[in-house]
């Protein structure tokens, strides 16, 4: 108990611990993969003394993949944290609400109409934008269907589940119209995978993350107040609907950008903020950066598991996250009212 209390009072300790763990996971992940490369080689290569082959493996395959895992994990976790706060619902998350599926459908349509998934580098930057449109569309549909004299959290979740199923069905129909190679790649990508990524994807998602997460942190005071309920918020002089709309847009954009490079990863946006809230409490000044780091850590670890558990076969990281996240979700269901 003593330790938990200390951490709760001093969130910085928690942040430092998670950052340390991310660094450890980062180096561990650099050392693992299909071709063996000892820690010595890794250090040598990082210092610029590696062989060409090692440089290729490290800088072109492993590094971008880890960086993407960090960015996507942070994006999904912050998106989940925002959604949980503004809906006052512990189990809100972009995957469960169908926002990820909307983004996924938009990306598949984009690939379908612009023919190839091996897009020229310039079109990689368009993927997050396409995903954003899909995610916004999904959010609007969910909001419209859930609206009946206001949006009740329960109805929001139920409608989200339905919309999720609907988007997935349309997705399947369109996937089958693709040619087989695109189809296989789309399937792999959709089940949540960060393999086969390169630096262009990092550059595609990076601006979204480094603009939107700090923006969310600036908005932390509003989130604190919104979390208390609409009436308190408006009596404290907050423009409730406007703030909520803006934050929702940020959450949707983060989810969309993440999905556009890493596919549909469910439960991460649920678990990361939830764990952080339990450890350091609900103050959003710390909850938001804490969730971002926790999400990054979880996704890097899940990726390590996915790479190594059944090596040489890789498990898509989305499946690893589901397998770990679902039990936690079940635990939440049993515990909460």
């Amino acid at each position: 108990m003593g330790l938990a209390d200390t951490i709760k009072k001093r969130p910085w300790i928690f942040i430092v611990i998670v950052v340390t763990l991310i660094v450890i996971a980062f180096f561990f992940s650099l050392n693992t993969g299909a071709s063996t490369m000892g820690p010595k080689d890794v250090i040598q290569t990082l210092l610029g003394n590696g062989t060409d082959k090692h440089q290729l493996i490290l800088f072109e395959f492993r590094l971008p993949r880890i960086v993407i895992a960090i960015l996507v994990g942070a994006g999904l976790a912050v998106s989940g944290a925002i959604l949980q706060s503004i809906t006052k619902n512990e189990i809100a998350e972009s995957g469960i609400l169908g926002i990820n599926a909307g983004a996924g459908l938009a990306v598949v349509l984009f690939i379908f109409f612009f023919q190839t998934i091996n897009l020229a580098i310039s079109s990689n930057y368009l993927l997050p934008i396409a995903a954003l449109f899909g995610a916004i569309l999904a959010a609007v549909i969910i909001y419209l269907f859930a609206w009946k004299d206001g949006v009740s959290p329960v109805r929001l979740i139920l409608v989200g589940i339905g919309v999720n199923a609907g988007f997935n069905a349309i997705l399947i129909i369109f996937q089958l119209k693709m040619d087989p190679q695109d189809f296989t790649e789309a399937i792999t990508w959709l089940s949540g995978s960060i393999w086969g990524t390169d630096w262009s994807y990092v550059l595609a998602i990076l601006p979204w993350i480094i603009i939107l997460i700090p923006l969310t942190m600036i908005k932390a005071p509003s989130l604190n107040i919104l979390h208390m309920g609409d009436e308190i918020a408006s009596s404290l002089g907050i423009h409730v609907e406007k703030e909520r709309g803006l934050l929702l847009l940020i959450a949707v954009a983060l989810a969309g950008a993440s999905v556009s490079v890493a596919g549909n990863i469910t439960f991460l946006g649920l678990i990361a903020p939830h764990l952080v809230r339990r450890i350091i409490g609900p103050k959003h000044q710390f909850l938001i950066p804490g969730s971002a780091l926790m999400g990054a850590l979880l996704l890097v670890v899940a990726d390590i598991i996915g790479k190594n558990l059944l090596a040489p076969s890789e498990i898509p990281v989305g499946i690893v996250v589901s397998a770990l996240g679902a039990p936690y979700f079940i635990y939440l269901l049993i515990k909460t009212n």
């Binding site: 979740i157 589901s322 996240g325 039990p327």
Partner: peptide, 10 residues
């Protein structure tokens, strides 16, 4: 519905 999703996902 949520329990079904969780069990299904697992």
């Amino acid at each position: 519905a949520l329990a079904g999703i969780a069990v299904g996902a697992l």
